[in-house]
Design a protein around this nucleic acid. Structure first.
Lengths: 337, 337
DNA sequence: ATGAAAGCGCTAACAG
DNA sequence: CTGTTAGCGCTTTCAT
């Protein structure tokens, strides 16, 4: 039922080599011959066996994509963008969803991508020494998304810078007591954004001559509930903040809920800024920081594909801009609620 | 640098056939021999080339997953669940993200999965005749998620039933004029949920002795903005509804926004029910219908893997239960806003 | 229990 | 421009 290259060769009256050349669009094939081959192939509904081709050529025509959690908005968005570029260029996409630290360890210990991909896209993972070595040992182009690196190609945003943008906005509005709802800086998945966003917060406060006060900082663990709990805690303290910077939109939603339940008005009593521009942020009328998610993925993937042949190219680091999106949670004049 | 089966054979002092058998855990290998092979393999950091194995065996050890949009919550969730099952069982996951009708057509015309997967999971696509034929021609087990089918295995929920559940809840609360914010029943992606959910709405109204009134039905196109626009339209009409059933949570959020902007209280003036139990639904205190998303994916994938050897098994259709989650958008006593 | 050998269906020199 | 041929690295009979 399924035909092979030999069937096509016979039908077209040529050798299998010519079939191979014709179908792959290689030069040195007479137009007439190519036509005959193409016709024969179409007639037989032929497609080359990718595995035979891969074995013979040594190229897998496949790119692996490693994400911590596919089901989170950010990663799903990235996956979609990477997929678009890959299939557009004739590459297969092999997905690896880590899920948790156990999954992460399993991945780096067994290295299931060995011998099956030509390149690898790794999203949002801050690599340990041994993880770095494991990836390097693959001997294929590797691109990191969301984190910088001297060893791998990378495309990311400047988290510290972006956080400064958010906090500066609050300062510009006259706020002096600005609470920080942060991520766990030593979480098991080892994300760096918490570190950088926190640093941006501290830096810009200093720059504005405002003292950093540890009691204005509470962990929200990047979840809605965590953001709510953190906000409650901040509100319970004496001399509460007049504004909050949450390191993610999710935590900001939690903060909004806590404020509403506490009977406080946003932004009149407490202003709130989030981070991510998650599609739902607009619904909450949340001021936030937007980053070019799809672009980061597209650029990184394209670059990787381009670099595929030679692995020697030295790591290239690209930093994309972020922007502040002002809404009603900080600016009452913009409120649409 | 990368070792082959021959290297292992040499080091272990056996033939490549024995290496192959040992590594794959096949019977008829002396324990001592197997040990030597395993040791040699470990020493050389050997992994079999999947492509060589696939070419030789004819099995791809790969399952394709086709989704309309990876970046939508529902599909991302499914993808994660499928991935977990597959990698757990040693299968690779090849992702196909259709994106739009053009992508869909391209997929079904070129059938890029040909010769590269042992089975296929297709999510939420109502197949045309020719699409059905194209899939059937693959000659591999195929599972449909979210839609029923006499030709393929499937796991889904009963959308009509679930919609009835939602609307019955409103009827129980005393509502008689219940608006329907629906999806486009003839959208290009040809989703069936709109049809079924609408039918459930109509059926349960009839059963309660309430006339179905076409003017209470407006399209929301499964988007937030669409839901908002639809609600505005309903509110502008004479004798407005006292309750709304939106066929998706997204549209329900749009409805909530429209109601708030119109100065109406939820649920006192207008009650709202959504559909999906999107993680954000809770934040909007939205009553909605929950379906077992991960379970559907897990069950379907496991079933497919089990059926892999013989394609002959006749299509098995499984319908999973849904449940109503009552929140403040319909029941004031539960309001947490 | 183990080995020899024949493919699997291509690609890539190499010849001509 | 086209054909021949030697692999690619495994799996799988078939012997032994």
């Amino acid at each position: 039922m399924t035909s092979s290259i030999e069937d096509v060769a016979k039908l077209a009256g040529v050798s299998i080599a010519t079939v191979s050349r014709s179908l792959r669009g290689l030069p040195d094939v007479a137009p007439a011959t190519r036509d005959r081959v193409l016709t024969a192939a179409r007639e037989l509904n032929y497609v080359a066996s990718p595995f035979a081709a891969r074995l013979a050529s040594g190229r897998t025509a496949t790119v692996g994509v490693v994400v911590p959690f596919v089901n989170r908005w950010f990663f799903a968005e990235i996956l979609g963008a990477v997929e678009a570029v890959l299939h557009d260029r004739g590459f297969d996409l092999l997905l690896y969803n880590l899920g948790d630290t156990a999954g992460r360890d399993r991945f780096f210990n067994t290295m299931p991508v060995r011998k099956r991909v030509d390149a690898l896209v790794v999203a949002s993972l801050v690599l340990t020494e041994s993880e770095t070595d494991a990836l390097l040992a693959l001997g294929i182009p590797i691109g990191l998304l969301g984190v910088g690196s001297p060893r791998f190609h990378s495309v990311r945003i400047d988290d510290a810078d972006a956080a400064s943008l958010a906090v500066q906005h609050l300062i510009d509005l006259g706020h002096r007591r600005i609470g920080l709802i942060g991520g766990d800086t030593d979480d098991p998945m080892r994300f760096t954004p918490p570190h950088h966003r926190r640093q941006g917060y501290i830096d810009v406060l200093r720059k504005a001559g405002i003292d950093y006060e540890p009691e204005l900082e509470v962990l929200g663990y990047f979840t809605v509930d965590g953001g709510e709990a953190a906000t409650k805690e901040l509100l319970a303290r004496p001399n509460r903040p007049t504004a909050l910077f949450a390191e993610s939109d999710e935590m900001a939603w939690g903060a909004l809920r806590a404020l509403r339940r506490a009977g406080l008005r946003v932004p009149q009593d407490v202003a709130v800024v989030g981070f991510d521009e998650h599609p739902v942020a607009e619904l909450f009328d949340l001021t936030t920081i937007a980053q070019p998610v799809v672009e980061q993925a597209t650029i990184l993937t394209s670059e990787l594909l381009q670099l595929m042949p030679d692995l020697s190219a030295r790591p290239h680091e690209e930093v994309l801009p972020t922007r502040l999106i002002v809404r009603g949670s900080t600016d009452p004049s913009r409120s649409v609620m």
